[in-house]
Amino acid sequence: MRNFLASFIILCFQYNSFCFASEINSFQKFNQTQSFTKNNYNILYAGISYDKQKEQFEDELVAKYSDKSLQIPQININYINDPLVDNITFLSKNPKSCISPNNSLIEDDFVKSHLVKFANVSYHKKIYNFENLNHTIVKICAKNFVSTKFLKSEGQIIEFITTEDVIQNKKVIIPKNSVITARVETISPNMSRGIPADLIIGNFKYGNINLEGEISKTGASRIYWIIPLAFIANTLFYGSGYILWIIRGGHAKLKPNQIYEIAMPDVI
Protein backbone atom coordinates (compact mmCIF):
# COMPACT_ATOMS: atom_id res chain seq x y z
CA MET A 1 0.00 0.00 0.00
CA ARG A 2 2.84 2.32 0.96
CA ASN A 3 4.68 1.55 -2.28
CA PHE A 4 1.53 2.14 -4.22
CA LEU A 5 1.03 5.54 -2.56
CA ALA A 6 4.63 6.54 -3.16
CA SER A 7 4.45 5.58 -6.84
CA PHE A 8 1.14 7.45 -7.16
CA ILE A 9 2.70 10.64 -5.72
CA ILE A 10 5.69 10.32 -8.05
CA LEU A 11 3.39 9.74 -11.01
CA CYS A 12 1.41 12.89 -10.10
CA PHE A 13 4.62 14.83 -9.77
CA GLN A 14 5.87 13.62 -13.13
CA TYR A 15 2.59 14.48 -14.78
CA ASN A 16 2.60 18.00 -13.30
CA SER A 17 6.21 18.67 -14.14
CA PHE A 18 5.63 17.27 -17.62
CA CYS A 19 2.75 19.71 -18.17
CA PHE A 20 4.80 22.58 -16.85
CA ALA A 21 7.87 21.60 -18.87
CA SER A 22 5.91 21.13 -22.07
CA GLU A 23 4.60 24.69 -21.78
CA ILE A 24 8.15 26.03 -21.46
CA ASN A 25 9.32 23.91 -24.40
CA SER A 26 6.59 25.13 -26.68
CA PHE A 27 7.32 28.72 -25.69
CA GLN A 28 11.03 28.32 -26.50
CA LYS A 29 10.20 26.65 -29.80
CA PHE A 30 7.95 29.55 -30.68
CA ASN A 31 10.74 32.03 -30.01
CA GLN A 32 13.24 30.06 -32.05
CA THR A 33 10.99 29.88 -35.11
CA GLN A 34 10.31 33.61 -34.83
CA SER A 35 14.00 34.53 -34.91
CA PHE A 36 14.70 32.04 -37.70
CA THR A 37 12.11 33.54 -40.02
CA LYS A 38 13.13 37.13 -39.18
CA ASN A 39 16.75 36.52 -40.26
CA ASN A 40 15.75 34.81 -43.47
CA TYR A 41 12.90 36.93 -44.70
CA ASN A 42 14.73 38.30 -47.75
CA ILE A 43 15.24 34.75 -48.97
CA LEU A 44 11.74 33.58 -48.24
CA TYR A 45 9.94 36.51 -49.82
CA ALA A 46 11.77 38.23 -52.65
CA GLY A 47 11.37 42.01 -52.63
CA ILE A 48 10.73 42.31 -48.87
CA SER A 49 13.71 42.67 -46.55
CA TYR A 50 14.03 42.87 -42.80
CA ASP A 51 16.07 45.83 -41.53
CA LYS A 52 17.66 44.66 -38.28
CA GLN A 53 18.62 48.17 -37.15
CA LYS A 54 15.21 49.69 -37.75
CA GLU A 55 13.47 46.44 -36.70
CA GLN A 56 11.01 46.71 -39.58
CA PHE A 57 10.18 45.15 -42.92
CA GLU A 58 10.84 47.14 -46.09
CA ASP A 59 8.89 46.74 -49.34
CA GLU A 60 11.67 47.33 -51.87
CA LEU A 61 9.38 47.19 -54.90
CA VAL A 62 7.31 50.11 -53.67
CA ALA A 63 10.37 52.04 -52.49
CA LYS A 64 12.18 51.76 -55.90
CA TYR A 65 9.52 51.98 -58.56
CA SER A 66 6.55 53.87 -57.23
CA ASP A 67 5.76 57.37 -58.57
CA LYS A 68 5.68 59.57 -55.49
CA SER A 69 4.06 62.48 -57.31
CA LEU A 70 0.87 60.46 -57.78
CA GLN A 71 -1.96 61.47 -55.49
CA ILE A 72 -5.17 59.83 -54.47
CA PRO A 73 -7.94 61.56 -56.46
CA GLN A 74 -10.62 63.37 -54.51
CA ILE A 75 -14.16 62.15 -55.16
CA ASN A 76 -16.92 64.72 -55.22
CA ILE A 77 -20.05 63.41 -53.64
CA ASN A 78 -23.22 65.02 -54.92
CA TYR A 79 -26.02 64.53 -52.47
CA ILE A 80 -29.38 63.83 -53.96
CA ASN A 81 -31.98 66.13 -52.51
CA ASP A 82 -35.50 65.12 -51.69
CA PRO A 83 -37.51 68.18 -52.79
CA LEU A 84 -40.67 66.88 -51.19
CA VAL A 85 -39.09 66.83 -47.76
CA ASP A 86 -37.17 70.07 -48.32
CA ASN A 87 -40.34 71.91 -49.22
CA ILE A 88 -42.05 71.07 -45.99
CA THR A 89 -40.58 74.01 -44.16
CA PHE A 90 -42.09 73.07 -40.84
CA LEU A 91 -40.26 69.73 -40.81
CA SER A 92 -36.92 71.08 -41.98
CA LYS A 93 -36.93 73.89 -39.44
CA ASN A 94 -38.11 71.97 -36.43
CA PRO A 95 -37.75 68.22 -36.96
CA LYS A 96 -37.89 67.37 -33.24
CA SER A 97 -41.36 68.85 -32.84
CA CYS A 98 -42.77 66.13 -35.06
CA ILE A 99 -40.87 63.05 -33.95
CA SER A 100 -40.09 63.04 -30.28
CA PRO A 101 -39.12 59.98 -28.20
CA ASN A 102 -41.70 58.77 -25.75
CA ASN A 103 -39.99 59.40 -22.47
CA SER A 104 -42.94 58.62 -20.27
CA LEU A 105 -42.02 56.65 -17.18
CA ILE A 106 -43.67 53.32 -16.45
CA GLU A 107 -45.00 53.48 -12.91
CA ASP A 108 -45.47 50.53 -10.58
CA ASP A 109 -48.90 51.59 -9.35
CA PHE A 110 -49.56 48.55 -7.17
CA VAL A 111 -46.32 49.13 -5.24
CA LYS A 112 -47.30 52.78 -4.81
CA SER A 113 -50.75 52.01 -3.47
CA HIS A 114 -50.04 48.83 -1.51
CA LEU A 115 -46.60 49.38 0.01
CA VAL A 116 -46.65 53.07 0.82
CA LYS A 117 -46.84 52.28 4.56
CA PHE A 118 -43.33 50.78 4.36
CA ALA A 119 -41.78 53.93 2.91
CA ASN A 120 -40.00 54.83 6.14
CA VAL A 121 -38.65 51.35 6.89
CA SER A 122 -34.89 51.12 6.59
CA TYR A 123 -32.56 48.15 6.45
CA HIS A 124 -29.04 48.25 7.82
CA LYS A 125 -25.90 46.39 7.01
CA LYS A 126 -25.24 43.75 9.66
CA ILE A 127 -21.98 44.00 11.57
CA TYR A 128 -20.79 41.43 14.07
CA ASN A 129 -18.10 41.03 16.65
CA PHE A 130 -16.46 37.80 15.57
CA GLU A 131 -14.07 37.90 18.52
CA ASN A 132 -16.83 36.91 20.90
CA LEU A 133 -16.88 33.12 21.29
CA ASN A 134 -19.12 32.97 24.33
CA HIS A 135 -22.55 33.99 23.19
CA THR A 136 -25.48 33.60 25.52
CA ILE A 137 -27.54 30.78 24.04
CA VAL A 138 -31.31 31.12 23.73
CA LYS A 139 -33.05 27.72 23.57
CA ILE A 140 -36.35 27.78 21.71
CA CYS A 141 -38.96 25.46 20.23
CA ALA A 142 -41.77 26.09 17.76
CA LYS A 143 -45.05 27.11 19.38
CA ASN A 144 -47.05 25.20 16.74
CA PHE A 145 -46.13 22.55 14.19
CA VAL A 146 -44.44 24.29 11.24
CA SER A 147 -44.20 22.66 7.82
CA THR A 148 -43.55 23.82 4.27
CA LYS A 149 -46.80 22.01 3.45
CA PHE A 150 -48.77 24.75 5.21
CA LEU A 151 -46.39 27.73 4.98
CA LYS A 152 -46.68 29.36 1.62
CA SER A 153 -45.56 32.91 2.03
CA GLU A 154 -42.10 34.18 2.71
CA GLY A 155 -41.98 37.03 5.18
CA GLN A 156 -44.72 35.38 7.29
CA ILE A 157 -44.20 35.74 11.06
CA ILE A 158 -44.25 32.57 13.19
CA GLU A 159 -43.81 32.09 16.93
CA PHE A 160 -41.35 30.18 19.08
CA ILE A 161 -41.15 29.73 22.84
CA THR A 162 -38.09 29.81 25.09
CA THR A 163 -37.53 26.52 26.89
CA GLU A 164 -35.20 27.96 29.57
CA ASP A 165 -34.52 31.29 31.27
CA VAL A 166 -31.93 33.31 29.39
CA ILE A 167 -29.47 34.69 31.93
CA GLN A 168 -26.83 37.32 31.23
CA ASN A 169 -24.69 38.86 34.00
CA LYS A 170 -26.73 36.97 36.62
CA LYS A 171 -29.89 38.67 35.40
CA VAL A 172 -32.82 36.96 33.69
CA ILE A 173 -33.20 38.74 30.39
CA ILE A 174 -35.72 36.41 28.73
CA PRO A 175 -37.80 34.26 31.07
CA LYS A 176 -38.81 30.69 30.23
CA ASN A 177 -41.95 30.31 28.03
CA SER A 178 -41.54 33.79 26.50
CA VAL A 179 -42.72 34.21 22.93
CA ILE A 180 -39.99 34.80 20.34
CA THR A 181 -41.15 35.92 16.91
CA ALA A 182 -39.39 34.82 13.76
CA ARG A 183 -39.74 35.40 10.06
CA VAL A 184 -40.03 32.76 7.35
CA GLU A 185 -37.04 33.72 5.25
CA THR A 186 -37.08 31.27 2.36
CA ILE A 187 -39.35 28.45 1.29
CA SER A 188 -38.10 26.20 -1.47
CA PRO A 189 -40.83 23.62 -2.23
CA ASN A 190 -40.38 19.85 -2.51
CA MET A 191 -40.48 18.32 -5.95
CA SER A 192 -40.89 15.05 -7.79
CA ARG A 193 -37.88 12.68 -8.06
CA GLY A 194 -37.60 12.88 -4.27
CA ILE A 195 -36.30 16.43 -4.07
CA PRO A 196 -36.87 17.72 -0.51
CA ALA A 197 -38.29 21.08 0.52
CA ASP A 198 -36.04 23.64 2.21
CA LEU A 199 -37.08 26.09 4.87
CA ILE A 200 -35.05 28.89 6.40
CA ILE A 201 -36.31 30.79 9.43
CA GLY A 202 -34.55 33.85 10.77
CA ASN A 203 -34.95 37.39 12.07
CA PHE A 204 -35.72 36.19 15.62
CA LYS A 205 -36.96 38.91 17.92
CA TYR A 206 -37.82 39.23 21.58
CA GLY A 207 -39.42 42.62 22.06
CA ASN A 208 -36.80 45.04 20.75
CA ILE A 209 -33.94 42.57 20.99
CA ASN A 210 -32.80 41.16 17.63
CA LEU A 211 -31.55 37.67 18.33
CA GLU A 212 -28.80 36.03 16.30
CA GLY A 213 -29.10 32.85 14.30
CA GLU A 214 -31.10 31.02 11.70
CA ILE A 215 -32.87 27.68 11.52
CA SER A 216 -32.35 25.86 8.26
CA LYS A 217 -34.40 22.70 7.75
CA THR A 218 -34.53 20.30 4.83
CA GLY A 219 -37.15 17.61 4.29
CA ALA A 220 -36.43 13.93 3.64
CA SER A 221 -34.38 13.57 0.48
CA ARG A 222 -35.58 10.50 -1.44
CA ILE A 223 -33.46 11.18 -4.48
CA TYR A 224 -30.71 8.79 -3.31
CA TRP A 225 -32.86 5.70 -3.71
CA ILE A 226 -35.40 6.89 -6.30
CA ILE A 227 -32.91 7.59 -9.09
CA PRO A 228 -30.85 4.35 -8.74
CA LEU A 229 -34.05 2.30 -8.37
CA ALA A 230 -35.59 4.00 -11.40
CA PHE A 231 -32.42 3.25 -13.35
CA ILE A 232 -32.56 -0.46 -12.42
CA ALA A 233 -36.28 -0.67 -13.20
CA ASN A 234 -35.71 1.02 -16.55
CA THR A 235 -32.96 -1.45 -17.39
CA LEU A 236 -35.14 -4.46 -16.54
CA PHE A 237 -38.51 -3.25 -17.87
CA TYR A 238 -38.02 -0.37 -20.22
CA GLY A 239 -39.69 2.85 -19.04
CA SER A 240 -41.18 1.43 -15.84
CA GLY A 241 -38.68 3.27 -13.65
CA TYR A 242 -40.10 6.64 -14.62
CA ILE A 243 -43.17 5.87 -12.48
CA LEU A 244 -40.91 6.29 -9.44
CA TRP A 245 -40.13 9.82 -10.52
CA ILE A 246 -43.53 11.03 -9.33
CA ILE A 247 -42.51 10.43 -5.70
CA ARG A 248 -41.90 13.79 -4.08
CA GLY A 249 -39.31 14.67 -1.47
CA GLY A 250 -40.28 15.37 2.12
CA HIS A 251 -41.55 18.63 3.55
CA ALA A 252 -39.29 20.61 5.89
CA LYS A 253 -40.86 20.47 9.36
CA LEU A 254 -40.32 21.96 12.79
CA LYS A 255 -41.96 19.92 15.53
CA PRO A 256 -42.89 21.66 18.81
CA ASN A 257 -40.74 19.27 20.86
CA GLN A 258 -37.53 19.98 18.91
CA ILE A 259 -35.21 22.45 20.63
CA TYR A 260 -33.16 24.89 18.57
CA GLU A 261 -30.40 27.20 19.69
CA ILE A 262 -30.09 30.82 18.73
CA ALA A 263 -28.02 33.47 20.55
CA MET A 264 -28.23 36.83 22.26
CA PRO A 265 -26.70 39.69 20.24
CA ASP A 266 -23.24 41.02 21.17
CA VAL A 267 -24.70 44.39 22.10
CA ILE A 268 -28.25 44.82 23.38
Binding site: L105, V111, L115, V116, F118, S122, E154, R183, E185
Partner: peptide, 18 residues
Amino acid sequence: EYIFNKYPAFLVNNKYKT
Protein backbone atom coordinates in the same frame (compact mmCIF):
# COMPACT_ATOMS: atom_id res chain seq x y z
CA GLU B 1 -42.38 38.92 -5.21
CA TYR B 2 -39.74 38.06 -2.59
CA ILE B 3 -38.70 41.71 -2.22
CA PHE B 4 -42.37 42.73 -2.22
CA ASN B 5 -43.09 40.41 0.74
CA LYS B 6 -39.92 40.84 2.75
CA TYR B 7 -38.26 44.16 1.97
CA PRO B 8 -41.09 46.35 0.58
CA ALA B 9 -39.30 49.61 1.36
CA PHE B 10 -36.82 48.88 -1.45
CA LEU B 11 -39.70 48.94 -3.93
CA VAL B 12 -41.40 52.01 -2.49
CA ASN B 13 -38.18 54.05 -2.38
CA ASN B 14 -36.83 52.40 -5.51
CA LYS B 15 -33.50 53.90 -6.55
CA TYR B 16 -33.80 52.03 -9.86
CA LYS B 17 -37.23 53.47 -10.61
CA THR B 18 -36.05 55.38 -13.68
